[in-house]
Design a protein around this nucleic acid. Structure first.
Lengths: 446, 446
DNA sequence: ACAGTTTCCCGTAAATGC
DNA sequence: TGCATTTACGGGAAACTG
C-alpha cells in the first residue's frame, strides 16, 4: 500500500518536445502563437489505469507571482487546452503527446494595475500537467511541472530570454522553483558563469572556451582580473553593457558561418586588441590571428596581422566581417583572397596562423565549401569570386571628372506611353499609394 | 424621379486601399490572412441618407464559377465581415472605410469533388459591396464590385497571380467580368502585350522599354520575328517557358538594386548574346554594355565588353550578378572595381558604356550610395571594399599543399567540461533533437 | 513519388502601449 | 518623447494533400 502510493506519487513525468526546426531555436523559451510539443509519461505501468487517466495542462497553475507584486503576464493554451487527452500505450509506457500546444496572452486583466518591475524576459513561468486517479479507495492528485520557462512574443527577445534561462538554472538549486528570481536576482561567481559560457560554445561549435578566451571574457565582464571573488550582477550581464547580447551574436555567427573553423581551433576569437598586439609583435611578419569584434554587437569577425613597415613591425586589422558579408564570402576564402595594396604593390599579408601554422595547413581543407562556387556555369561567362580588398589611397585608374549629361535615348517616348495606358487604372508595380485613385476598382450596378 | 433613380443606381463606388508596405506588394492580389483595406464611397450626397446606409461586403457574390465546372476555392472575410459599417461623412463624400479586411479559405466543401482545372492563380474572384435604401417609396438595391482579383496563400504565388491579372485586364473588355477567363484563355497579340510589358518597367524604374528591348522580348516570346500576326498563348507566357517569371524577376531586381541606372538608361538590359556581340564588335576596345541574364530565372545582371586579344577583338562577359550579390555590392561599384587579370597584368576592362559614353559620365554620379560604406569606423581598422574579380588561372601566391594536422590546444579539456555539466539537462544551443531526452523537464509532485 | 498549394516560422520593420 | 513589447508580414522552407 505504501509502496503503491509512493510509486503513484512520483509517476508523472513531463518531457518537452519542441517542434523541430531546421533553423535554430532554443529550448525552454516559448513564443506566443508558435507550436510546441509536450509529452507526458506515466512511469508506473499498472494495467488497471491504462484507459482511465486524463491529463490536463495548466499554465502557471498555483503561481502566486501572477497575482501579487510581480504582476506577470498571463497566458492560455490556444489549441490543446480544453482538450484533455486520453493516455495511450506506446512503447511500453503510458504517454500523452500534446502535439499542438500554443500560447496566447490573456489580455483580460486591466492594464496598469499591478505593474511588473520585471522585463518580460525576466518573467519565469511554468506549465503543470495534472491528473487524478483512484486506487484502493484513495484519490491521488498527481502533477508534473516543467522547468521554469520564458514566454516571448518576438524572436528579437530570444537572446534576453536565453540569458534569463541560463541565470535561473545556475542560480537556483536543483528543484527550486522560484519564478520571481529576477525580482532580486542573485549574483554569480565567475566560477559559476565561466563553465556556463564555455558550454554554449561547446554546443554551438563543438569546442569549449580555453583558458585564454575565458580570461579575456572575465576581464571584460568583471573588469580587470583584480577582483576574483566578486560577483557578477544580472544587470551587468544582461542589460547595462549588453555583454550577453554580444556573446550571443558571436554564437550565432559561429553557428551560421564558421563552426568548422571554431571546432578546429582556428579562431582565437576572444583576444583583446592589446593582447593581439603583444602576441603578434613577437612573431614573424605575415603571422595573423582571427578575433571577434568587440564593438559590433550583432557579431563580427576580423583578422589582425604583422606587417613590415618603415618604422619596424606594425599590427594591422581588417574591418570586421559582419554576418551579411559572410553570407556571400566564406572566411577561409576571405583569408585567401584578401589583398592589400601598399605603395603600388598588392599582396596578401596573411601567411601564418598564430602561432606558426602555415595558412594552407590551417585553411586549405575548408576551401571546398564556397558560398558562390567559382565554377557554376563557366560556359560563356568569365567566372568571378567576391573578395574584400583594402581601400587603396592611390588614385583610381580613371580619375573622377565632372559628370556629363548623357544623351539619353528613348526618354521622349514617355508621354506617348502614358497615353496608351490612360484607360488602365493601375497595372503597375508602383508603390501602393498610386492605387488609391478612384477608378481602381470597377463599379457595377444592378 | 428618373434622374434620382439614375443617380442612386450609379452612386456606389469601391476603392481599394491595400495596406501600405514599404516592401513591394501588388494591387488586385489578396493574400489569405493578410490585412487589406477597402473604402466604399457613395457618390450622391443626399442629406436624407447620411446615417441610414449600411454597406456589406460579400465575397464572390452571385459567382457561378464557385459551384459549377470551375470549382473555385471559397473564401470568407475573417474580420470586417459581419460588421456592417455605418456610412459616415468625410471630406464631403459619404464613405465607409473597411480598415481590417482579411480573407480566410472556407474549407467546408468536400475536397475532391468538382476539381478545378485551373491553378489557384488563375481563379478570378470578386468582392461586391451591397446596400439597399428607400427613396420615395422605392427600394433601390445598389452594389459596387471590385475588378477581378486573385487570392493567394503565399508570396511565392504573387508573380503568377500578377501575370493572370495582367492577362485578364488585357483580354477582357472594359466592363467584362468573366471570372472563368482562364478556362479558355484567349491569346494576345504582340501589339497588346508589348505596351503592357513596357508599362511594368515604367512603373518600377520610371522608364519604359525602348524599341530594341521590345524586339528582343518579342523574339524571345514569339520565336523569331517571322510571325508578327500570331497570338501569344497564355500557357507559353505563364507556364511552359516561364517567360513572365523571368521578366518579373528582372523587374524585382531593378526595383531593389538598379532602378536609378534603369531610369537613366544606363542598362540596355534586353539584348541577346548575338546582338551583344554584333554591337560591341564594331566598337573600340573597352566598350561595354549591361544586360540581364537570360538563364537565371530569379533575375541577374551582367556586363559584356570588348577585349583585345591575340586573334583580334573578343567579346567577354562577367558571370551574372544575382540579387544576393547586389545586396552587398552596388552595380556601379562593381563596374568601377571589376578587375581582370590576364597574363599577370590586372586591369579594369570597362571604359566606355555603349555606344560611347565614358564610364565616369555614366556612373560617377551613383557611386555615393554604397551598400557597405567604405568609411564606417575607420578608426583602427583598414577599410575594405567588396569587389568581384575574374578568377585568375595563374597559380595562387601560396600553392596548395597537403593538409597538415595541427596541434590543437585545448581539446583535451572537453571531458572535464562535460562532467561539469552532467546535471544540467540542456542549456545548449544544440539542435532540438537533443532536447527530447527525459529529464529535460523537471518533475514536481504534490 | 511528386507537384501544386498551404502552413509554419524566423527576422525585420512597423505599430502599439506606457 | 522614448523605450519596451507586440503585431505584421515578406520570404524561404517544411508540411500537407491529394
Amino acid at each position: 500500500r505504501r509502496l503503491t502510493r509512493n510509486l503513484l506519487a512520483s509517476a508523472l513525468v513531463v518531457e518537452k518536445q519542441p517542434v523541430m526546426q531546421n533553423l535554430p531555436q532554443r529550448p525552454l523559451i516559448l513564443k506566443t502563437g508558435v507550436r510546441f510539443k509536450v509529452t507526458v509519461s506515466f512511469m508506473v505501468n499498472l494495467p488497471a489505469f491504462k484507459t482511465l487517466i486524463k491529463v490536463k495542462p495548466v499554465f502557471d497553475k498555483d503561481v502566486e507571482e501572477v497575482k501579487t507584486i510581480s504582476g506577470f503576464r498571463q497566458f492560455d493554451f490556444s489549441r490543446d487546452d480544453a482538450k484533455v487527452l486520453d493516455v495511450d500505450l506506446s512503447s511500453g509506457a503510458l504517454t500523452a503527446a500534446y502535439e499542438h500546444m500554443s500560447l496566447k496572452e490573456k489580455k483580460s486583466r486591466v492594464k496598469g494595475s499591478c505593474e511588473s518591475q520585471l522585463t518580460v524576459t525576466e518573467e519565469l513561468h511554468i506549465i503543470r500537467f495534472v491528473t487524478q486517479l483512484q486506487h484502493n479507495g484513495e484519490t491521488f492528485h498527481i502533477q508534473a511541472s516543467s522547468l521554469p520557462l520564458v514566454v516571448v512574443s518576438s524572436s528579437n527577445q530570444v537572446p534576453s530570454a536565453w540569458a534569463a534561462i541560463m541565470w535561473s538554472n545556475m542560480a537556483s538549486g536543483a528543484d527550486s522553483e522560484n519564478l520571481s528570481l529576477f525580482l532580486d536576482p542573485p549574483g554569480l561567481t565567475w566560477q559559476q558563469l565561466a563553465p556556463l559560457l564555455s558550454w554554449q560554445f561547446l554546443s554551438v561549435g563543438q569546442r569549449p572556451l580555453d583558458q585564454d578566451q575565458l580570461s579575456m571574457l572575465q576581464a571584460k565582464i568583471m573588469g580587470d582580473p583584480g577582483d576574483p571573488d566578486g560577483l557578477i550582477h544580472w544587470n551587468k550581464f544582461s542589460k547595462d553593457e549588453s555583454v550577453w547580447i554580444w556573446i550571443d551574436g558571436i554564437l550565432d555567427l559561429i553557428k551560421k558561418f564558421v563552426w568548422e573553423l571554431w571546432r578546429d581551433g582556428c579562431i582565437m576569437g576572444f583576444v583583446s586588441k592589446e593582447r593581439t598586439r603583444s602576441l603578434l609583435r613577437e612573431k614573424p611578419v605575415g603571422t595573423f590571428l582571427i578575433r571577434f569584434s568587440e564593438s559590433i554587437l550583432d557579431g563580427a569577425i576580423t583578422f589582425s596581422w604583422v606587417e613590415q613597415s618603415a618604422g619596424g613591425k606594425r599590427i594591422h586589422a581588417v574591418e570586421p566581417y559582419t554576418k551579411k558579408e559572410l553570407s556571400v564570402l566564406s572566411l577561409p576564402n576571405a583569408i585567401y583572397n584578401y589583398t592589400l595594396t601598399m605603395s603600388g604593390r598588392s599582396h596578401n599579408p596573411l601567411v601564418y596562423l598564430y602561432p606558426d601554422t602555415p595558412k594552407d595547413a590551417a585553411f586549405a581543407r575548408y576551401r571546398v565549401a564556397e558560398p558562390s562556387p567559382p565554377s557554376k556555369k563557366t560556359k560563356d561567362y568569365i567566372s568571378t569570386k567576391i573578395i574584400l580588398v583594402a581601400i587603396d589611397p592611390t588614385p583610381p585608374p580613371s580619375p573622377p571628372m565632372p559628370a556629363i549629361d548623357m544623351d539619353l535615348d528613348g526618354l521622349e517616348d514617355l508621354d506617348g506611353l502614358e497615353d496608351l495606358f490612360s484607360d488602365l487604372p493601375d497595372l503597375s508595380h508602383l508603390p501602393l499609394e498610386s492605387c488609391s485613385e478612384p477608378g481602381f476598382f470597377n463599379q457595377f450596378i444592378i
